[in-house]
């Protein structure tokens, strides 16, 4: 299976573990990820916050390159990039006047295809749980985790049109077929603080703190994410969260592809587990997984 792949800046930067584990898992699933050639940054929070046309144009350039690869689908592991690309496609489809203007701005056609999917969506809808399960060589039994979706994997629902915006289950499904128990918890679709990691750290410590607290209360031993922003906020601010709440959480924050990779027989090191600030090693050792 061939699919266009948009890694985004974080997967080349702080969240390389997400990139490498995604590649390994896709290899095992016979998915050929074809990186969109010479892609540009999606513009993230900064572009859509200050300049709508810029934000759509940055997305349109990527869409156009992907379209020229003659693939009918793009998959985006970063929920933030996914949101921007999907929104760009949505805006171009529903606003022909803007689409015309954007085509002029990028000096190229501004297509609404290929269809943009996030990685969780691509796995559940295109690959299927059965196939995901079929590649498991080591079921990760004993692990009890909270699947954390955050905002942009499923919202805004009229744009994303995938899973439930409030009670999503798709990532839980994936984790369950590789042997993991997922907890029923309250904050799976609440916000971690998004793009304020550096500029308004207090907001992130507050919102991410609520997420961690809720996961802990639900009995989770780890939080599993599908977004580098969620990961950075939770993983790098866990210390600050623990300090502000006066609680020690012991809560590794793991990309879902890292766990898939373990179930598929890849090693701790290959999957970039060492890059996590809050080590997952004690937990994985305790369950006899590594």
């Amino acid at each position: 299976m061939n699919v266009a792949y948009f890694p985004g800046c974080s997967l080349h930067g702080l969240s390389r573990a997400y990139n490498s584990s995604t590649h390994l898992v896709c290899d095992k699933l016979n998915i050929n990820l074809q990186e969109i050639e010479d892609w540009n940054c999606c513009g993230a929070t900064a572009a859509h916050s200050l300049n709508h046309k810029l934000s759509v144009s940055l997305g349109a350039r990527n869409l156009n390159i992907a379209k020229n690869m003659n693939l009918d689908m793009i998959t985006v592991p970063c929920a933030g990039c996914f949101g921007r690309l999907k929104t760009a496609s949505y805006e171009l489809r529903n606003n022909p006047e803007l689409a015309k203007e954007v085509a002029e701005i990028i000096n190229a056609p501004a297509p609404v295809e290929p269809e943009v999917t996030n990685l969780v969506q691509f796995f559940t809808e295109q690959v299927g749980l059965e196939k995901i399960a079929s590649k498991v060589v080591k079921p990760l039994t004993g692990l009890k985790v909270a699947a954390y979706y955050g905002c942009l994997l499923t919202r805004p629902s009229k744009v994303v049109a995938f899973d439930s915006p409030e009670q999503p289950t798709s990532m839980d499904d994936i984790l369950q077929v590789i042997g993991i128990e997922t907890v029923n918890w309250s904050h799976k679709a609440e916000c971690c603080g998004g793009g304020y990691a550096a500029s308004e750290t207090d907001i992130v410590v507050d919102l991410s703190g609520q997420v961690v607290e809720s996961a802990k209360n639900a009995g989770a031993d780890a939080i599993v994410v599908a977004c580098p922003m969620c990961h950075t906020n939770l993983d790098t601010r866990l210390g600050a969260i623990e300090k502000s709440r006066g609680v020690k959480y012991d809560m590794p924050i793991i990309f879902f592809t890292q766990l898939m990779g373990l179930a598929y027989g890849y090693s701790y090191r290959q999957l970039g587990f060492r890059q996590l600030l809050n080590s997952a090693s004690p937990l994985l050792k305790k369950q006899g997984i590594i």
Partner: peptide, 29 residues
């Protein structure tokens, strides 16, 4: 983060930077 090898000083660069510059120029507020 640095010692965990999270920070990547060698991120692959984009090539056709004139194209993004054009987008910024044409959408400048």
């Amino acid at each position: 983060m640095f010692f965990k090898g999270k920070v990547n000083p060698f991120t692959p660069k984009m090539k056709k930077r004139d194209e993004t510059r054009r987008i910024f120029k044409m959408t400048s507020l």
